[in-house]
Amino acid sequence: MGSRKGFFTDTTLCIGCKACEVACKQWNQLPDDGFHFTGMSYDHTAHLGASTWRHVAFVERPVPLQGQTSGAGDFSWLMMSDVCKHCQRAGCLEACPTGAIVRTEFDTVYVQPDVCNGCGYCVSACPFGVIDRREDDGRAWKCTLCYDRIGDDQTPACAKACPTASIQYGDLDELHARAESRVRDLHQRGMTDAYLYGKDAQAQPGTGGLNAFFLLLDRPEVYNLPPDPVVPTKKALRSWASVAMGAVGMVAVALGAVAFGREGRG
């Protein structure tokens, strides 16, 4: 028990079948979100949420894939199965005032539903906009990295269902090695745009690295990922310093008002 687990999502292999979305909904018995059309693309899920823990993004680009020609002209699809990143420095975890959000023995980030009181602070604290609160439930929910499966040495539902091994689950060290060799392979084949998003603290210092990291082909913005995310806590010290400064000012004003106002002529 206790080795670091994570996801490696290789977007070059994703075919946009949404089997991961379905498997996730089914295993975790997540309620439906209504059946709505976004009217913009094949993506009718639009974003991760309280009852959507995997989301396949469909990116349309007016440029061909590197090293490929197609009859459709200068056009290519990019598909990415998005998920909670299980950050090393998790904004939600560090913001949670109740201790409902914990780091598990698998180094993943987990929300305990029996503790969460629905304050909503984690929702604003997540730099990726992953965690959300369901209005009628009143609690925050997100991907558990199938905490109930991996404890029994089972693969999380999404990775199990993925037909192209775009979603790979395993020990983080092993995934890192696999991802790096995949990038080397792609670069050799001429796809030099390929890079790993959030693999470790060096690649993404703001989050200290992601346990669920991605292989991408275009800038993060295109996939709706922040280009330089930071856990808000890293910037908290300067705000607390301002509070200390303000406190000195407030004491000075209160003491001054009384000292000069008690005898004065007004």
């Binding site: 018995q29 009217g39 009628d136």
Partner: peptide, 19 residues
């Protein structure tokens, strides 16, 4: 008994605005 089955749901989420 799934993790998400604990969610209390009265209604599906409201429809998003079409684009």
């Amino acid at each position: 008994e799934g993790e998400g089955a604990q969610q209390r749901v009265k209604d599906p989420e409201p429809a998003r605005q079409g684009m």
